[in-house]
Amino acid sequence: MSNIVGIEYNRVNNTTANDFPGFSSDGSNAWDVEKFKETFDVQITSLSEREANFDLINIDTSMANAFRRIMISEVPSVAAEYVYFLTNTSVIQDEVLAHRIGMIPLKVDPDMLSWIDTSLSEEEKFTDDNTVVMSLNIKCTRNLNAPKDCTDPKILYHNSSVYAKDLKFEPQGKQVETFAKCPVVPSDPDILLAKLRPDQEISLRVHCILGVGGDHAKFSPVSTASYRLLPHINILKPITGEQAIKFQKCFLPGVIGINEETGEAYVKDARKDTVSREVLRHEEFNDKVKLGRIRDHFIFNVESTGAMTPEEIFFKSVRILKNKASYLKNCPITQ
């Protein structure tokens, strides 16, 4: 059977893989490591501090999806969990400010912290081993040097806006050494937390701990981690001339090229296609083109929140999946 998901005008077909044992009489379809090693391929398109784009080719959907799911909800990261207010005379309420602080992505390697023991009492729970303490002490004052006719609060006052960068890391105990090289800072310093006016003051301490995205979205290390299938455009009959130009316009620029000599349309780069299905609206292309997507070619896009590089997140997801598999393997039930 084909490994192409069929994209029709009003439905998608052939969405499920069927290369599992017992599906058909021809070929056993049993999973084979060697065969997998041979065919599996990773292609990296782009890789940066915050975003990665790579392809996983010839891998089962369940695996690709597992990586995606784990990246979103199970790769641990550090976020603010407990906020202790000393003063807050701003207009923003304590709960809302705490929520906003919680959502700030922190640049801290989650491996440097251990899990918190929830069974302990409030006093004993936090140690320099499992907690990062941040503090925010800010007060808005008037800028005496501001020009008279000025109306911009940024010039009129000092600290009229509180940003994520105003959160200061307070190393505890041995953290002075361990975090010496990599002090904890918000990965995006310019997130607005609150606005202040003269004599308003915020003073608080934040305990940041390890957690997973499944518990709360703030612990998710990715802004988004998802994949799409590689588009596939199959031109069944040659499309030429005026039609070719129209055909080209049905796709985003760069997807379809036109042969300058013959005037025939050809698929230049199917990867750029967004599968808008625009071409299926036009009757003249009805039997000339077949759209599809390759079922086992996943184009991953992982966007990190900043604590870890995207590849690190992906590797962690692989490791977690591996641990899960080995747990399952060693599980007493299976024996």
């Binding site: 439905r11 893989a17 999806n65 799409r228 625009e278 609206r281």
Partner: peptide, 22 residues
């Protein structure tokens, strides 16, 4: 680059496969 009708091709979050309807 979207479909004119506002209907998108979605993947199931549980199985990871494409949904059969737009």
């Amino acid at each position: 680059g979207f479909n004119y009708s506002g209907k998108d091709m979605l993947y199931s979050g549980i199985t990871g496969e494409c949904l059969q309807a737009y």
